[in-house]
Design a protein around this nucleic acid. Sequence first.
DNA 1: CGCAAAATATGACTTAGATCATAGGAACGA
DNA 2: TCGTTCCTATGATCTAAGTCATATTTTGCG
Lengths: 234, 234
Amino acid sequence: MTETDSLRRIPLFDLLNERDRQRLVGEVVEVCYRKGEYIFREGDPAEYFHILKAGAVKCVKSSPSGKECTLKVLMPGDLFCCEAAVFDGATHPGSAAPLCDVTILRVSKKAYFAMLRRNPDAALEVIKYLGKRLNEAQENAKILALDRADQRLASLLVKLVERVGIPEPNGLRLAVRLTRQDLANMVGVTVETAIRIMSRFKRAKLVSGGAKQIVIRDLARLKELAVDSLAARR
Amino acid sequence: MTETDSLRRIPLFDLLNERDRQRLVGEVVEVCYRKGEYIFREGDPAEYFHILKAGAVKCVKSSPSGKECTLKVLMPGDLFCCEAAVFDGATHPGSAAPLCDVTILRVSKKAYFAMLRRNPDAALEVIKYLGKRLNEAQENAKILALDRADQRLASLLVKLVERVGIPEPNGLRLAVRLTRQDLANMVGVTVETAIRIMSRFKRAKLVSGGAKQIVIRDLARLKELAVDSLAARR
DNA sequence: CGCAAAATATGACTTAGATCATAGGAACGA
DNA sequence: TCGTTCCTATGATCTAAGTCATATTTTGCG
């Protein structure tokens, strides 16, 4: 795949005219990271827009006491970290870490903004993208504030399967590899409770599999559980 | 205050040229709502951008079981509900309710988008605004996921006082009137716990006052409590 | 003013989820 | 293939916060 081909899959890229595409291509740098490294860390100066080309990345925030919270799992095509890169002299409000070996494209803030200023339609697309992300984040906050741990985990699995579910003979397999710890960090519980709840879900034939791969076996019931407060106890 | 004057205080308005200002002025409608009404409700079609002119508004989401969660308190100058109004045919993902009698300005999506398309600098300002809101929402989610109830409440009071704190002889008074129920809905706890924690804060001379007005008497210690996990127990 | 309605206050009890501890299983590199 | 290192599993407590119940205080209104 050539550089230009991969850029074509970037959201917004389609809206540019040929000249701006060429200009942007010149500004894009492809970088690879391995699992265990960081793409950037909380507090680093934010100098680039990042676009995920291949692999999966998690956005993480941590508290002074060392506890971590995973805000979102990014998949190819996703932009990050718009929320910070947007401000002059700002630092990243969270870290980005690969969930596997990944390759990302990065563009300097300056070049990206210049492109947006020349392409109002692209800017409107970014506005829509950010609107969507804001929505997701608020929905997430609502779930954290109001729902029980098992409901939050069910919601998470439903969201994940809708984004990265791969059909399989006995259900939908998640294309990302997530440990119970990862799941726990996404719904704000400890590993132990995440494990206990997942075990319950297994017993109830809602899911199967371990860290290597998670398979959703009964999406409908998971969805019910996510909203209905007392379905499928024990 | 004339219509144009109040528009001058809208974020982004400064960036427009005179002609676009005039055009937008023609599209703006001023509407008043009283406490107890709704500006829009979850599920309503989203047809306008809203700008708060005077008063205070809360953005609320609710779960099927009837529990509510307040996502943000808006103050004059704030835009809402960008996160939804941005999409074609979308409905509001949450409700907006006045905390007192308010007046808002509203512009049709179409007119606003047309204006942004003609004014790339204004579009970039909206991008920055949404980036900031996304940040806030994610920070919020982190706090909900990781912190104890008293820390969340302390964080909330700190955030509020920074936005709407009015200096007073014995501290900073919040310019918005919020009941314990309102506070509870913002940090994801029940009224009773919000009351108990506020009582503790009162005893510790961190705050004073009731529903009519909340006064922050020791901001420094509240900030400590918000991060440090074991300050100021009992 | 005086009364109804709303908001705060506090106690007693229950429970979801955290914490601590320990063990078994899967995965991967030497 | 063995061993080390992650990861999952599960039990035994402990505790923060929810729930229910019942005052007491504010506040606004007629």
